[in-house]
């Protein structure tokens, strides 16, 4: 039971990261119907900007952890979305309305480009970082095995829940959210009714990138090591999460993220850690074959 609880906690931590990234996929898919394959790289860039911000703060002598974390969070949430915005402006906007495969190839090209750009400007080596937050609670003890809930994990849960509540409210209550929902239903009609469609789509990319950058920061402080390649795997798993939850659905993305995190964590714990990625890919394949609309998605009818 103790082992199970520990895996549950670890899985939920991992799931928070996937959920935050998956929201970016789901928002973009909902509005313009394309798979933003480069979204994983935005997450990776968020992690890099976070580590750079930590290092700069260390040099400047900001050592009080809460302040440093807050500054890093703000820095990465401001600088990373610029990449999301530029990505849409440069690569996706000219292709709006072209076939889906053209958009997907562009997204793959952009993903390769961003990966290699980061490799060139930051070097190919892995970037290690000292743990920022240590310590935690001991919530259960069974024989010699203790279940730990670290302060870091609590922080991750709190940040994830707060962000998800905020973004759900943004989409449900604000004018921007209303515009986004209108664009999701019908781009042309929304434009006719005076909604600035380009601006709405840009802001959607900015929102997705902001959440992915927080996921990058969480990844960095949770694992303490990043490289230019982390975006690929995390991106695919988050996409799997978005598909599992029902692509286009915001609560679905969160649910899917948590489920993928749990599946991965339990698979590693009870079966083989080597095949944990295979487990995630299998979920993707099975969901797409048997329930392409996901758990919470609406059926997608292809019109001729």
């Amino acid at each position: 039971m103790a082992y199970f609880t520990q895996q549950l906690i670890n899985g939920l931590t991992l799931g928070s990261i996937y959920g935050l990234i998956a929201i970016g996929y789901t928002l973009v898919y909902g509005i313009i119907g394309m798979i933003n394959f480069a979204h994983g790289e935005i997450f990776m860039i968020g992690a890099f900007i976070s580590i750079i911000a930590f290092l700069v703060l260390g040099i400047l002598g900001v050592t009080w952890i809460p302040l440093a974390l807050l500054i890093v969070l703000i820095a990465t949430m401001i600088l990373t979305p610029v990449y999301g915005w530029a990505l849409e402006r440069v690569a996706y906007r000219p292709l709006r309305g072209s076939p889906r495969l053209a958009a997907l190839i562009t997204a793959i090209g952009m993903s390769i480009f961003l990966q290699n750009y980061v490799q060139l400007v930051q070097g190919a080596r892995i970037k290690p970082m000292q743990p920022v937050i240590s310590g935690g609670f001991e919530i259960m003890r069974e024989g010699s095995f203790t279940v730990a809930l670290s302060y870091l994990q609590i922080l991750i849960f709190v940040v994830t829940v707060v962000l998800m509540v905020v973004f759900t409210l943004v989409i449900a209550r604000t004018e921007l959210g209303r515009a986004q929902r209108a664009c999701e239903q019908d781009l042309g009609m929304a434009a006719l009714l005076g909604i600035d469609v380009d601006r709405t789509i840009s802001l959607t990319f900015v929102m997705g990138a902001a959440l992915a950058s927080v996921a990058g920061l969480i990844f960095l402080i949770n694992y303490g090591v990043i490289d230019f390649y982390i975006g690929f795997l995390a991106g695919i798993k988050a996409f799997t999460a978005a598909v599992l939850g029902g692509i286009g659905s915001l609560p679905g993305a969160m649910l899917g993220g948590l489920l993928i995190g749990l599946i991965e964590s339990f698979w590693s714990a009870y079966f083989t850690v080597e095949y944990k990625d295979v487990a995630a890919y299998s979920v993707l394949v099975l969901v797409l074959i048997f329930r392409p609309t996901g758990l919470l998605g609406k059926p997608d009818i292809e019109k001729v």
Binding site: S98, P99, I105, T106, M110, Q115, L120
Partner: peptide, 17 residues
Amino acid sequence: RMLAFGAAMVLIMVWRP
């Protein structure tokens, strides 16, 4: 090389899908 691959894929799709 890979940087140019990525950029080429994007540019070509934008220019001539």
